[in-house]
Amino acid sequence: MESSVKPTTSVKLVLLGEAAVGKSSLVLRFVSDDFQENKEPTIGAAFLTQKCTLANRVVKFEIWDTAGQERFASLAPMYYRNAQSAVVVYDVTKPASFIRARHWVNELKSQGSPNIIIALVGNKLDLTGEQEGQEPGPVVSRDEAAAATGDLPGRKVSYQEGEKLAQEEGLLFFEASAKTGFNVRKIFLAIANKIPLETAKPSTTGQIGGERPLELNQASTQDTSCQC
């Protein structure tokens, strides 16, 4: 198999975001290319893995998909501890979920790993009724959007709002749909591409552990070969 010749790096990734924005659905799409209309809420967290093959290496994602309800937030540090990457999800039809996403970004910035790579994802794009892959013009009036969507709930968080937050905070940004699969792989590929080779933990047998990236960092500060 091709991947066996390429070096494999393991990357811990955590999914955060308000309840029912579609975190588990995004993971399901990414891991099994599937979608379920009535997905049970995640209790605590679920753990899944999926490999991503890049040009020069394979990235193995160890995904912690967390529960979205507010009161589970105090559990979140257990899961994002030592995570090298995070996907913060909101629902483009629910403004409140965007506010919650902003909070998560703040929390990750202040409590997460120092160089954590964060992707902001506006999910359920299919519910806007917009043509996929066609980025909306600079200004879409609410009325126009509503008119175009018919029975669908329609977009309540504009592309620009998401993009702005991402720019301010230095995040990757995507609008996606777990239902249609649009942009889902792209999110994980983009993260994989941003993972620097030396901070990703090599998945050598028997040597797993959150302290891993930390140890490596410490080693590299002593090591003069570090490229700063």
Binding site: I43, G44, F47, L75, Y79, G209, G210
Partner: peptide, 11 residues
Amino acid sequence: REVPLSVVSLP
């Protein structure tokens, strides 16, 4: 382990 097993048992 990075994530203790009790996290697995929480649900």
